[in-house]
Amino acid sequence: MLKKLLPFVEHVIKKPVWDCRMCGQCVLHSTGMTCPMTCPKTLRNGPCGGVRENGNCEVIPDMQCVWLKAYDRKVFLPLPTVWKDHFNELRPPVDMRLQGSSSWINLVTKRDQQTPAGWSTTDGAH
C-alpha cells in the first residue's frame, strides 16, 4: 500500500517544485537543489561542454543550463555545508530499475545506496 501511495505523494510534491522525474534515487541535496534528471542529457556529474555563452542549454537553447543553475544555487543558497561538500562527489550511474519508485522509501531502506558490485571510486564518495 505504502509502496504504491508514496511514489504518488512524492511526485505530487516534487514535480511542481523540482520538475522531478521520479528516478527513485534522489540527489537533489548534493546538486544545489536542482534535479540533474531535467538535463536533456540526464548528466549527474556536471555540465557538458555545449553550454552556450549566455548560460543556456545546448539542446534547449531557451532554457538555462541545469548545471549552471545547480552550481549557482550551490554557491548562493544557504544550504547545509555537508550538502555543498557533496556537490563534487562522483555520483554513480542511475539504477534504471528504480525509475518510478519512491526515493523516500529507497533512502530509508538504503536501496538508493546500492551500486553495481564493481563500482568504486578513488575519492571515497559514492
Binding site: G46, P47, G49, G50, V51, R52, E53, C65, W67, Y71
Partner: peptide, 15 residues
C-alpha cells in the same frame, strides 16, 4: 575532454 571556455567557468576547473 573539457571546455575551458563555456559557463560555468569556475566550475569547469572543479570538473
Amino acid at each position: 575532454v573539457e571546455n575551458p571556455s563555456a559557463p560555468p567557468f569556475d566550475y569547469r576547473i572543479e570538473r
